[in-house]
């Protein structure tokens, strides 16, 4: 990113139109501001108070002048409204044959469900040069889906659907994915957090969009998603995949893996296979079945000493297996 650029990189078909308008307004503002301040400074200097020089009484004003500066700006304003509205209409009306992705905002993560039923959390594969429509809703409070690189934004509201569409114009790199922000204030986890942790409060409710070639997205829709590319060479692909999910889906916000106390949820190290006490009495063995239930329906059996604060996660069976494999591997350490 250019250090001195006022605007983020242009990654969607809307961006050039929006930026043109932005820069037009920018230079219009600079010109108006300089003119007004120059006149002001000139008058203040020219008519500074001097002995023996009286102010000239104002008289009855100048109706022609008043009407001119009342109505001439209207022309400029009408142009601004028209141009802004024109682009807005394009942004509001998606074309036919879009690729649809369902988005759910929840405190403090984003879920993307593709048409093949696969759900990605806090990241999503997006085909390049393809109109994509997002059908969005919230499962708790207001959020707002904001992608600066695309110049798009729309509130995500509980109890109703809002939509957004865009067409990405370039592939993203793994180092610099297209970042999604939440632009509507949605609170924070109470108490201590590491401020920079992803998905612990409004300011870290982020997701990464990976803009991939159309063929790659088509393959993904057909065959489903496997472990990420970085796990291809891992000793145990499942453990690597589980660790990837742990890091990218927001687990790490509450669950430590170092065996030390602290955190909003149970520590994962050394928990698998153990007998654990439950909130409200009773106990359960932390086996595969229990872990799976706790991911899909966290309120079912809450571990003693912890609040029921975890939202349900829609992971696929393979992903749950990977998470379990990762937890197991922590026991071995």
């Amino acid at each position: 990113m250019n250090q001195f650029s006022q605007l983020p990189p242009q990654m969607s078909t809307f961006a050039p139109d929006v930026d043109w308008m932005y820069l037009f307004l920018f230079w219009l503002s600079v010109a108006s501001f300089v003119a007004i301040v120059a006149v002001m400074v000139y008058f203040v200097f020219k008519y500074r108070r001097r002995p023996g020089v009286e102010a000239v009484p104002t008289g009855h004003g100048n109706t022609a002048l008043e009407l001119a500066w009342t109505f001439l700006p209207l022309i400029v304003l009408a142009f601004l409204f028209h141009e802004g509205f024109r682009v807005y209409v394009q942004e509001s009306v998606p074309p036919e044959n879009t690729v649809d992705i369902h988005v759910t905002g929840k405190q403090w993560s984003w879920e993307f469900t593709h048409s093949n039923g696969i759900t990605e959390t806090n990241e999503a594969k997006i085909p390049v040069h393809t109109p994509v429509r997002l059908i969005m809703s919230s499962s708790d409070v207001l959020h707002s889906f904001f992608v600066p690189d695309f110049r798009i934004k729309r509130d995500v509201v509980p109890g109703m659907y809002t939509t957004l569409w865009f067409e990405a114009t370039a592939l993203s790199t793994p180092e610099r994915p297209v970042r999604v922000f939440c632009a509507e204030y949605c609170g924070a986890l109470q108490g201590s957090t590491n401020g920079n942790d992803r998905n612990t409060n409004h300011s870290t409710m982020m997701a990464d969009l990976h803009i991939i070639p159309q063929e790659e997205y088509a393959t993904f829709l057909r065959e489903g998603g496997g472990p990420p590319a970085e796990c291809a060479d891992a000793v145990d692909v499942n453990v690597c995949w589980g660790q990837y999910i742990y890091a990218h889906n927001g687990c790490s916000a509450c669950h430590e893996i170092n065996g030390e106390a602290g955190g909003h949820g149970p520590n994962w190290m050394g928990v698998f296979g153990e007998e654990i006490a439950l909130e409200g009495g009773g106990s359960v063995t932390a086996d595969d079945a229990y872990i799976k239930r706790s991911i899909l329906d966290p309120s079912a059996d809450v571990v003693s000493g912890f609040g029921n604060i975890m939202p349900p996660y829609r992971l696929r069976d393979q992903e749950i297996d990977a998470v379990i494999a990762f937890m197991r591997s922590l026991n071995a350490q």
Binding site: V18, M21, L28, L80, F81, G84, F85, P148, I152, K153
Partner: peptide, 13 residues
């Protein structure tokens, strides 16, 4: 004006 203009407001809101 940037915020009243719809296209730029979507980005800046």
């Amino acid at each position: 004006l940037f915020l009243g203009t719809l296209s730029t407001d979507i980005h800046l809101h």
